[in-house]
Simulated scan of single mutants.
Amino acid sequence: MPDRRPDKERIWIIGASDGIGAALAWAYARRGAQLILSARNEDRLEDLAAVLPCETAVVPVDVADRLSLSQAQATLQAMGPLDRVINMAALYDPGQVEVLDPAKAAQIVNVNLTGSLYVAQTALPLLRQGGQLALCGSVAGYFGLPQGQIYSATKAGVANLAESLRAELAGRVDVRLISPGFVDTRLTQKNAFAMPGLMTPEDAAEAITYQLDRNRFEVHFPRRLTLALKLLRALPYRLALPLTKRLVR
């Protein structure tokens, strides 16, 4: 696929109320895109739309609610075909397995994994031929890491989902997987440990916009972290598991 033209793209960003999603809205706005911003918090979306230097529409949505996405789909169909759909919506609640709240764990599954499926189903009739669907995984999905628990499991599932969609929709939709490392957002601020390679949302958005314009299936950054974790994933369990065990201590 040739490099994509950034001018006058129509882009739907889900999870745009803060963090990486909001930074992506700024990045694409500066490129002159037409944006549709979605998240559960309509007030934050309206505040962001009011200051962005581009044509912007706000469509509140809850990715865990299929009806909510169906309503959004009906609204977006009236706006014309989309060039990109980027789903950054996610929940995160770190902790060891014995203290995890089962209800919260179920909510994380519904938002991160089931929500990604719902977004894909919603996006297909909205995207132009050859349009781009980007789902957000995480480097936490590369390997089961201590205290990642449900979050890591859902992100591994998102990666698997994106891989299957990439094959299933080849020639129709350009499916991509976004795998960020540690980015300074309200989610990672829950972490009680030093985060290697911590990035700002703005730097993360720059990496995402740059790599989504290229041909590689996976967008991953920072590479000094992601490549190390990819190596861990490639090791046999007899070598990889003792290494991850050390992280518990």
Rank of each mutant, 00 (worst) to 15 (best):
T122M: 15
R30S: 15
D174V: 07
I11Q: 01
D62F: 13
P196S: 01
Q149G: 15
D62N: 12
N87H: 15
A194G: 07
L126N: 06
L165C: 07
I178G: 04
P6S: 15
Q107K: 15
A90N: 05
K245R: 11
M199E: 05
A162K: 05
L227Y: 14
E163K: 12
T114K: 14
K8F: 08
V99W: 12
M79D: 05
R40K: 07
T200A: 06
P201C: 03
A33R: 00
G171E: 05
I36M: 11
T114R: 15
V99K: 13
A74D: 10
T226I: 04
E206G: 12
K190Y: 07
L243W: 08
C136F: 08
V85Y: 00
T188C: 06
Y210E: 15
A167M: 10
D93Y: 10
Y118P: 05
R30I: 04
L45H: 01
G15K: 04
K230N: 09
A78K: 10
A49P: 00
F217Y: 09
Y142N: 08
P102N: 03
G144A: 13
Q34D: 10
I150E: 02
P102K: 05
N191Q: 00
L117N: 10
T75P: 05
I20A: 02
L48C: 09
T122P: 13
A16Y: 09
R238H: 09
G131R: 04
V58S: 01
I108G: 06
L227V: 13
D174I: 02
R223K: 14
G32D: 01
L177Q: 01
V173T: 12
D62I: 09
A240H: 03
R233N: 08
E55C: 08
R246V: 05
Q149C: 11
R224Q: 14
G181E: 07
R186M: 09
Y28P: 00
K245Y: 05
E42N: 02
A170S: 12
K245N: 12
P81F: 03
C136P: 06
L76N: 01
V173M: 04
P242I: 14
Q129K: 15
L231W: 07
G171M: 15
S152F: 02
D18E: 14
D83M: 06
I208T: 03
Q189R: 10
P60H: 01
A103K: 13
E9I: 00
N112H: 03
D174R: 12
